[in-house]
């Protein structure tokens, strides 16, 4: 077997994992992506998996800086425009509220 084919065979599983990961990220539900960002960057929580979609993010510790960073993440990740004038508790209070707000937001052309 040539060295080239051997290298390709060794790297195939890694490629498959990377491809699968990319695909997963591409099709990962919005709320999961938001949740992953929130609990890795903005709020410490002992058990993020247990945090419900209607649980209060503001009570959990999401502060003003966190809200801005979350909005910037959502705009970049989902290609939308979230106007500053719409930054209010109703739109950021929970994962469900966030998802609704993002889905209704205009696309960033």
């Amino acid at each position: 077997m040539s060295a080239k084919i051997a290298r390709a065979r060794r790297s195939a599983p890694a490629l498959a994992r990377a491809s699968s990961s990319f695909t997963y990220r591409l099709f990962k539900p919005m709320k999961e992506q938001l949740k992953a960002f929130i609990f890795s960057e903005l709020i410490y929580h002992e058990d993020p998996a247990a945090f419900g979609d209607d649980d209060d993010l503001l009570e959990a510790g999401l502060d003003s800086m966190g809200i801005m960073r979350l909005i910037m993440f959502a705009e970049k990740e989902f290609g939308v425009i979230l106007p500053d004038t719409e930054i209010e508790p109703d739109n950021v209070q929970s994962l469900n509220a966030l998802e609704n707000w993002i889905k209704q937001a205009p696309q960033n052309a």
């Binding site: 903005l42 709020i43 510790g61 800086m65």
Partner: peptide, 10 residues
């Protein structure tokens, strides 16, 4: 100042 820690992080 703004803090780089996650909120409530120990």
């Amino acid at each position: 100042a703004f803090n780089l820690r996650r909120q409530n992080a120990p």
